[in-house]
């Protein structure tokens, strides 16, 4: 095991970690405001789809389309859950189903295929450093936002005790809506990266990363830096499998695919066995305020 091998592993980890980090951060900001965000998987998929659709007009257009789609999907989700007080879990799952259905539908309509888009040559380039730096920076920024700004203070208060926040004149719905929008923006970066990295769109290409990111968020104790750390751990496991497989270890594809999800289950079980040690969800998580 040489230094260059380890370096390569580190690079792969960071590269694979981007969607986990961004979605876990998106989940963190939303849940700290009290909105359960099962929609992460859907947000990843929709922004990836939009990025692929925008790709023919260049990389910038692809990125903008992805961000716009993430924002729009988050707006719908926020409108339903925050303003209309719809069940957050049902809506999150529905957003996933919508993203899956819509992406397959549009794949068929636009590319005439049910499984994947053609290669998107416009996305050639070395994007990895940009996205990786961006993801790590986003973690730091979110940490600062929550801890050192008035908006962050209000966001935390709204997630813990919305009635108290409202009694002090904090516009609870507006804060929650902004948190969900920010969540959509952050998560969409992960989706955009999936397309930029693979240079094509594949049906269900998020592959459960949105759900795994939820687990990473829980492991991170609903804290941005914790979420980044946990997301990198999941990415490390995936990177290890990918690299070992590439080196000829007889590891079948399905096993590599199964690994992140299986690992998530193991980790959830371990967390239960070890106890939660002070990390607990925001007190008003999942409770709409009327």
């Amino acid at each position: 095991m040489s230094a260059s091998w380890l370096l390569g592993l580190g690079v792969t980890t960071l590269r694979l970690g981007v969607p986990y980090i961004m979605a876990a951060l998106g989940g963190t900001v939303s849940e700290r405001a009290g909105v359960i965000n099962i929609a992460l998987e859907g947000l990843l998929l929709l922004s990836a789809l939009a990025a692929a659709l925008g790709a023919p007009h260049g990389a910038a257009a692809a990125a903008l389309a992805g961000l716009g789609a993430g924002l729009a999907a988050a707006a719908v989700f926020g409108l339903l859950t925050v303003l209309l007080r719809a069940n957050q879990v049902v809506c999150g799952v529905a957003m996933f189903l919508l993203a899956d259905g819509l992406s397959r539908f549009l794949l068929k309509v636009v590319y005439g295929s049910t499984s994947n888009s053609p290669r998107l040559g416009q996305l050639e380039g070395h994007w990895a450093p940009l996205f990786v730096t961006g993801a790590l920076l986003a973690g730091l920024l979110l940490h600062g936002l929550l801890g050192a700004t008035t908006f962050g203070l209000r966001l935390r208060a709204v997630g813990e005790h919305p009635a108290a926040a409202r009694s002090l004149g904090v516009p609870v719905h507006r804060v929650r809506l902004l948190a969900v929008l920010l969540s959509g923006l952050l998560t969409s970066v992960g989706g955009i990266w999936l397309v930029f990295d693979q240079r094509q769109f594949v049906a269900l290409m998020s592959g459960g990363r949105g759900f795994i990111a939820l687990a990473a968020m829980i492991f991170g104790g609903w804290r941005p830096l914790g979420a980044v750390g946990a997301a990198l751990l999941f990415a490390l496991a995936e990177a290890l499998a990918v690299r070992l497989q590439a080196q000829g270890l007889p590891l079948p594809n399905y096993a590599v695919q199964m690994l992140p999800c299986g690992l998530t289950l193991v980790a959830l079980g371990l967390r239960g066995a070890m106890g939660t040690r002070g990390s607990r969800p925001p007190a008003a998580l999942g409770q709409p305020l009327d």
């Binding site: 069940n87 049902v90 819509l102």
Partner: peptide, 13 residues
């Protein structure tokens, strides 16, 4: 599949 999701969203809302 899209319609399924739409039904679910509107019901929940």
């Amino acid at each position: 599949d899209v319609l399924t999701a739409v039904v679910l969203l509107t019901l929940a809302a």
